[in-house]
Simulated assay, not measured.
Amino acid sequence: MKKILFIAVCAIFLGCNGNAQKNSDSKDQKKFPVTKSEAEWKNELSPQEYAVLREAATERAFSSELLKVDEPGTFVCAACGNPVYKEKYKFDSGTGWPSFDRPIDGGVAYGRDSKLGFERKEVHCAKCGGHLGHVFNDGPPETTGKRHCINGVALNFIPDDK
């Protein structure tokens, strides 16, 4: 009986080291048009931008000035300037992060993120692979039903009049 219990416990512990943390669609496995070394990215980005865009960190909720943007324009990737979202698709989700119901066509790429123990759809810049945020299915039902929950530090805003 002790032998069976020992084997069962070992199987459980070894089973916990499975594929849940592996990310088969990881951005590291994809090639993006803009590629730089991590040292180059660290030189070009602020520490917070680097943490979010290159290490998939999340900025503190309600900390982004971009939550207040409500004029026509385009949100671009803070790392490479790639246009990713239009202001007209931005909405107040109440979550504390800039939220959009859709990206600019071809502006973003997607992957899977299972770091929290469950799978989420991760959003990357299609040009440099920078982590932008995640997509959830709780957006405005009258449009796409999607909520692109995006870190403001990963974006820059360019008003239409410039």
Rank of each mutant, 00 (worst) to 15 (best):
I150Q: 13
F75I: 00
K146P: 01
C149W: 01
D92E: 13
M1Q: 13
K42A: 15
A126G: 07
G81L: 11
K86P: 09
S93K: 08
S64C: 11
C16R: 11
S99D: 05
T144Y: 06
V84P: 02
K3M: 03
G107R: 04
V9L: 15
V153F: 01
E38C: 03
T95I: 01
D70H: 14
E71I: 15
L5N: 11
A61E: 13
G133I: 00
K68V: 03
L116F: 09
P103T: 11
S37V: 07
F32Q: 00
V123H: 01
N137P: 11
G94V: 13
V135T: 02
L66V: 00
P47A: 05
K42E: 13
S93R: 08
F13R: 08
Y89L: 07
N137Y: 04
A11M: 14
E49A: 11
G133L: 04
R120P: 00
G106F: 10
E38R: 05
I150S: 04
R147C: 01
A20H: 10
H134I: 15
S37H: 12
V76I: 15
G133T: 00
R102V: 04
D113E: 12
T144S: 12
N17E: 11
T95C: 11
Q21G: 12
I4R: 12
I4L: 14
E55R: 15
E122Q: 14
S37Y: 14
R120A: 03
G18D: 08
A56L: 03
C77V: 01
K121G: 03
M1N: 13
D70W: 00
F13T: 13
S26E: 05
G145A: 08
G129N: 02
D105V: 14
D101S: 14
G107P: 12
V76P: 02
G111C: 13
L66F: 08
D113K: 04
S26G: 10
H148N: 04
I104K: 05
F157L: 08
C80N: 06
F75S: 12
S99I: 01
D105S: 15
D92S: 11
A39P: 02
W41F: 13
S63F: 03
A39L: 07
A20V: 12
G133D: 06
N43G: 12
N137V: 02
D105A: 15
G73I: 05
C149Q: 01
C77P: 06
F62G: 10
I4P: 03
Q48I: 00
E38T: 05
